[in-house]
């Protein structure tokens, strides 16, 4: 089973993404907690793209492809922003107390924790992030 959707590099499009995922979850009969987690992972990845990938003021399209088979869901996010490899980002120390915890850096960390595999590649001037969740 496959699904494709595109969203613009505008943070106000995130609710549309949530709607698409909910529909997908129903069609593919995914558990509600899994759909919520996929929504979270996509929000973190896409908000990073929207906020940091583009220096111009132009509209860009971010492509999301989802595929489900017997034992996994694979989500691929493709954008034409500047090169950014989230798998190389420093992970926050989650054992620190409130005083010492930094505000931020959590988004990419959550993606890595929730998904089973996170792969990045740069191809044809595009960032391609592949996220795999085993079922």
């Amino acid at each position: 089973m496959q699904k494709h959707f595109n969203i613009k590099n505008n943070i106000q499009q995130l609710p549309l993404l949530a709607e698409e995922l909910e529909k997908m979850g129903e069609e593919w009969e995914l558990d509600m907690p899994l759909v919520t987690n996929l929504n979270l992972v996509l929000e973190e990845a896409i908000s990073n793209i929207v906020f940091y990938a583009y220096d111009d003021e132009r509209e860009h399209e971010i492509n999301i492809a989802a595929e489900k088979n017997d034992n996994k869901v694979v989500i691929t996010i493709t954008d034409d922003g500047k090169p950014f490899d989230p798998t190389k980002k420093e992970t926050p120390d989650v054992s620190l107390s409130a005083e010492d915890r930094q505000i931020g850096g959590l988004g990419i960390f959550l993606i890595g924790k929730i998904m089973d595999t996170v792969q990045y590649k740069r191809e044809n001037e595009k960032n391609i992030l592949t996220l795999i969740k085993l079922l």
């Binding site: 919520t36 979270l40 988004g107």
Partner: peptide, 20 residues
């Protein structure tokens, strides 16, 4: 509360720091 992302978690942390 049925959904929270890292931006929301950040507000929880800011609130905690402030009240501490």
């Amino acid at each position: 509360l049925n959904y929270i992302s890292s931006s929301g978690l950040r507000v929880f942390l800011i609130t905690q720091k402030k009240l501490m």
